[in-house]
Every structure is written in C-alpha cells, then in structure tokens.
Amino acid sequence: MLELHAVTAGYDRRAPVVRDASLTVAPGEAVGLLGPSGCGKSTLARVAALLHRPDSGTVVLDGTPVHRYRHRAPRDRRTAVGVVFQQPRLSADPRLRLTDLIAEPLRATGRRAAAPARVAELAQTVGLTADLLTRRPHEVSDGQLQRACLARALVLRPRWLICDEMTAMLDASTTAALVRVVEDYRTSTGAGLLAVGHDRTLLNRWCDRTVHWDTVTSTATKVLT
C-alpha cells in the first residue's frame, strides 16, 4: 500500500500548500487525483514520491512508515516509486543524451552492466528509435522527451508510479501512447499508480477510481480511504 495520512506540506510552514490530505493507493490499483492547477496536488505527489518532507502527517510505503525523505531516504525505498513530471524539458538534464537519461538510475544504483539491454528494451516499449536515443533533449520534441522520461521512471521497475500531469503538454496521440505504456507496465508487474491531473475525462478513462482534491483534503472523507 502507498498511504498518505493527514499530510500537511509546503515550502513555508506558516502557509502550507497541502493541508491535511489523505489518500491510499493499493498495489495494482490506479488512482486518479483530480484538482485545479495550483491547488497543491504536485506537492502532494512529491511527498508521495519521498521527494519532499511533509510538515506533518505520515506516509506509509509498503507497510512501513517513511521517516526520511530525498537523499536521506534509503535508496531502495525511493527507487520503489517512479515519477514522471509535467514538463519534460525541465525534467531532463539538458546535457544527457536520451540513452544516458534513461540509463542514469541504473548507473546511480550500480547496475551499469544492465543498462544497454534495459535501455534498448524500454526504448522499444515507449516507442523511441535508436536515432532519437543518441540525441540531447533540445534536439527532440516534447512528446519524444516525455517518452524518454517515462522510460527513465520505469527503468528500475518501481512498485509504485506517480504521474504528475504527465500528459498536460502532449497531443492526444502521444497521451494515449504513454498511458498505454503505463497500463501495460502495470498489468505485467502489478504496480500501483497515482495519476495526478486536471483532465477529468482522461483520468476517468485511465484510472480505476478518481478522487477529487477537495475530498482528499477535507477531514470528512478521511475515513473513506
């Protein structure tokens, strides 16, 4: 289970962006989190990905409460959650070729030898050609770059996947293609998904259940999870 209990988080303790949010994703489940832009759902997504320490509240990952975040979180805990962000341009190190971008988590975790085979396999999955893999981010389109970012999120075979507005910048066909990649991955591995977005039609079609931001943060429905 990926559980968020009464999470309050933000960048300034006096004015938290997220107040008292609770949400649970079961293994193999796809949960859509629907909310208007600027409501704090991206911050909640970062908390769930162990990238941001909440001011209060608890995150429980696979039954164990999380006490440490970012670099301090044990490596196998943070790599259990894969993340894809909204803007591929900002999510890709501009100096890395797409191959290196996808292989980076393998290298960072000392699995360098597995990189070539795994990158080739994932490139096929997300639909990137060999030629595109040799390019740098500024030489490919947003859609192609987001495919690479999704491949990077999947490269360590995470048990949880968090897609924060993954398709907001993309056209309909690329959106459908990336959602299909995520769904195929989930079917084959049984991973859980938290898809954050503002497009109701998309999340309803994509996810097993869609929760609205207001119900996540209001105390009344906290028991609902």
Binding site: G127, L128, T129, L132, Q144, D171, A172, S173, T174, T175, A176, A177, V179, R180, D199, T201, L202, N204, R205, W206
Partner: peptide, 15 residues
C-alpha cells in the same frame, strides 16, 4: 481524434 480519452483512446502507431 480516435486517440482522445472520450473516444477509443488508441494512439497512432509509430512516431
């Protein structure tokens, strides 16, 4: 159009 989530939600193959 067919790739839209309220239609068949199937991508166009390839790039």
């Amino acid at each position: 159009l067919e790739a839209l989530p309220d239609r068949s939600f199937t991508p166009i193959p390839g790039l």
